[in-house]
């Protein structure tokens, strides 16, 4: 049902920015004229605990207000969650999972014992440390997600993100530029099988 809606699930740890990533991605999609939803796993947030957040994106208005159980794309911000959280729950045969890790897609697939679906990896933490100086994997993961989903125009998305970051980090060009570089790098380097 509702095949025209792209559903995404983000896995992270409380405080790591899984909710913010979903909001940022939703906002970027909105700027490209899409209809969007972005919401956290409802409930109290606890620093460090496994949390999830979600996106729905569509060209048409979205009236679905239930939880997302079969996401087309799963994004894992923290590789240490794998094995503790069932990150591939409900992932369909034609779905994709993107993991922030130094490992290869084949290794991740083997670890997850995943048959079907596509597995992508990107060292978003490494990219983030290099470009921003801190381990904030969610912005580079946005770049990887745009590539894998093919849902948004990358150039447009970069432009919107830059505008938004400029508002939030006025007078800190190194943060703005660092984030943009990180997104570009992740977009270019994300690899899958």
């Amino acid at each position: 049902m509702s095949k025209k809606i792209l559903e995404i699930r983000w896995h992270g740890r409380g405080g790591q920015g899984a909710k913010t990533a979903a909001l940022l991605f939703g906002d970027a999609a909105l700027s490209s004229g899409k209809n969007i939803q972005a919401f956290p796993e409802y409930g109290p947030e606890r620093m460090g605990a496994p949390v999830a957040s979600f996106n729905r994106l569509s060209d048409d208005p979205i009236t679905l207000h239930c939880s997302i159980t079969n996401p087309k794309i799963v994004v894992v911000l923290d590789p240490t969650l794998m094995g503790k959280v069932d990150v591939i729950a409900g992932l369909p045969e034609d779905g994709s999972i993107i993991v922030n890790t130094k490992e290869t897609p084949a290794t991740v697939r083997a670890n997850l014992k995943l048959k079907g679906a596509k597995v992508y990896t990107i060292d978003a933490s490494g990219i983030s440390k290099e470009a921003i100086g801190r381990d904030i994997p969610n912005t580079p993961m946005l770049g990887a997600l745009v590539k894998v989903s093919g849902f948004l125009d990358f150039t447009q998305m970069l432009k919107d993100t830059e505008v938004k970051l400029s508002k939030k980090f006025k007078g800190k060009p190194e943060i703005i530029n660092g984030n943009i570089e990180a997104i570009k790098k992740a977009y270019a380097e994300v690899a899958g099988e």
Partner: peptide, 12 residues
Amino acid sequence: TDGFIISHCMSK
């Protein structure tokens, strides 16, 4: 409006 389902869901 419905708690969390709408109150915490960002949409257009």
